[in-house]
Every structure is written in structure tokens, then in C-alpha cells.
Design a protein around this nucleic acid. Sequence first.
DNA 1: GTCTATACATCGATAGAC
DNA 2: GTCTATCGATGTATAGAC
Lengths: 192, 192
Amino acid sequence: MLAVARGAFAELGYSGASMNEIAGRAGIRKPSLFHHFPTKEALYVEAVGAALAPLGELVAEASRSTGDFGARLDRLSEMVVDYLSAHPETARLLVREVLDSGPFLSAGGKQTVGAILGAVGEFLEQGMRAGAFREQDARHLALSIIAVHLFYWAADPLSGAQIEGSIFEAAEVASRRAAVVEHVRALVRVAT
Amino acid sequence: MLAVARGAFAELGYSGASMNEIAGRAGIRKPSLFHHFPTKEALYVEAVGAALAPLGELVAEASRSTGDFGARLDRLSEMVVDYLSAHPETARLLVREVLDSGPFLSAGGKQTVGAILGAVGEFLEQGMRAGAFREQDARHLALSIIAVHLFYWAADPLSGAQIEGSIFEAAEVASRRAAVVEHVRALVRVAT
DNA sequence: GTCTATACATCGATAGAC
DNA sequence: GTCTATCGATGTATAGAC
């Protein structure tokens, strides 16, 4: 049910996805949907939170682990690509939310997002201090890396414009994964 | 008038920005707005087209010029950053449009966007053939570069989360411009 | 060109039967 | 828990006076 809402909000946006539309996709009527969630906002906030949490977990895992920074970075890149490609609505939903400064960010989600952003920055700065990543502005670096990850999946009408199938097809995902690993490496200028 | 609409659509999205809201911002009433544009869609398509055109011109200029690929790439990066930072609504509006597969893309704008994307790809491939850029998938490279450019300005609540002022302030723009030039260079792996 | 007034659909949300 | 029916507000768009 949250999954249905996530899909609708991702596809149509917060104001574009009506409770009627979401209920219809879930195979029930509008008042039944209001029985499970007090307001549209509450439904939306839960849907975004559920979509964001696994990404925070991936970042935390990369921060928590030890060893070679380059290998940890590559692994994080791959895990994020795999997650975003396996859940096609997620990137779109998250990008929409930051564009809107939407109900999720307004309702305490700013802390969750800030924590994830901070963890990414912390990881990058550790790598710089260790000499594995080139010294540079960690904030701009983190934002560019996040951009590379999210934009491609969120903008699939643009990303898939010149290919025949879907960007979420296995072969295309593998192609993007390889490209992202390479691009993120280049951005941090990992010593190879 | 188009500028007002651009701002409203960028801030609130296509379905979130009502004709009443736009008319109010322009200092007139709703029917007066309908006198200038036959439908909401027509107003929106014109607004997006006007926002996109200058970016296409910048890419065309970079393609058209001759000389060192690294220098042309740096100049293009700087020009794009300057344009997007000087028109704070633009990136948000364009990102929204690709997320929505909105009225602009549906109404023939797909060709305009495809042409720009193609020109970027062409420029990158020329640089690769010339040995100035590292050989790689030009499509994925172009999308990552576009992501680095657009996402930062579009997601300003995220981009500006850890700084005190606005990301559109002069000092912050200069900081981002330097970072973007560096990041795009790293992505293409320009030989320095 | 801009206005008041309005038509008609859909929005989020609620009441109350089953 | 799900439904029909409905409330009041707001959406796009139009009619017609000035």
C-alpha cells in the first residue's frame, strides 16, 4: 500500500497524485485510504521515509566498515546503483522531494537527510585525510556524487532517450553501474 | 510575464502552480492571464522553451568553436554554471520537466532536448577521438555531467543545507563554479 | 486588456451505513 | 475496513460587461 503510494507520488508528484488516484491503484476507494492514513501528507511522509531509509543504511555501512577507501567507495557506488535500479520510483520520489522542499523535509525529515549527507561528507573527508581521495571541498563533492546517482534514474525519459529498451533492464543497469563506479572514482580522484 | 510563470512552475511544479497563483504573482487576475495564453499547457510550454534555449546555445557555441578541448570544456562548464546561477528557477524547472515527462517534452520539446543531448555527446566523442578526453561511454558521461550541473541548483534546499546564506550568492556561486569545472574535468579525465 | 461572475470537474476530507 | 454520499474549497476555463 505504501509501495503503491510511492509509485504514484514518484510518477505524478505530491500535488499531481490525488488520493483518489492512489486509492484506485490500490484497488480500493478514497475513504478506505483515509481510514489507513489520517491525511495525504501523512501517507506521503511515510512513503518517502520508507524509500530513503535503505540508502541511509548503505551509507552508514560504508562509513562503519574499514579497509581500503577506494574499495569501500566502489562497493557503496554499486550498492546504491543496485538499490535505485531495483526500485525505479525511488530516485524520482527523492529528487521531487528536494525540489519541492516537500512535506517530508518540512516534517522532521530534514534531520534524516542532513544525517545522511553528513555521513557521506564524513566518509569523503576521512578518505582525503588518509590520502586515498584528492583534497577538495567535501560538500560540493558529495552533492555531485549524489547528483550522478539520483539524476540518471529520476530522469529516465532523458536517460533512456537514445536507447531502445528501458534503463531498468538488466543489461542497461550493468552498463550504468560500471559507468557510475568509474565516474565516482574520477570525482574523488582515487589513486589507482 | 513568462518569467513570472517560470518562477511559479519551478517552485510549485506544473500541477502545483495554478493559473490563479501565476496571475496573482503577475499582478493581474486569472481571466486576464487566459487572454494571453489559450491554456495552462501553452503557457507552460513557452516558459520551459524560453528557459532551455540559452543552454542549447551555450552547447552549440562550444561545439562550433575550435581549439583545445580542455579549454572549451572548461569554458562551457563556467558558462553553464553562470547561466544556471543567474536564473535560479531554470534548473528546477528543467529537472521537473524531465521527472514529469511533462507537457513540454510531450509537445515536440523532445526533439529540442534530444538535439542538445546529441550535441553534448558529439562534443565529448570528438574530444575522445582527439585524445583529449578518456575513451568511455559518451551517453553515460553526458548524463552524469548534466546531473552535476542541474541537480545542485535544482536541489537548493539540499545544496544549501549546511551553509548559512543562499547558494545563489556571489561567493557561493564562485565556489560551485570552481568545483564544477574540476568535477567535469575529472569525469572526462582531461589530460592536465 | 482587464475585470466580475460563473460553469463544471476534481481536490482533500468527513459522515454514517454495513 | 470498505463503502456511498456529500461538504466546502479550489482547479481550469469561459461569458460577457467595460
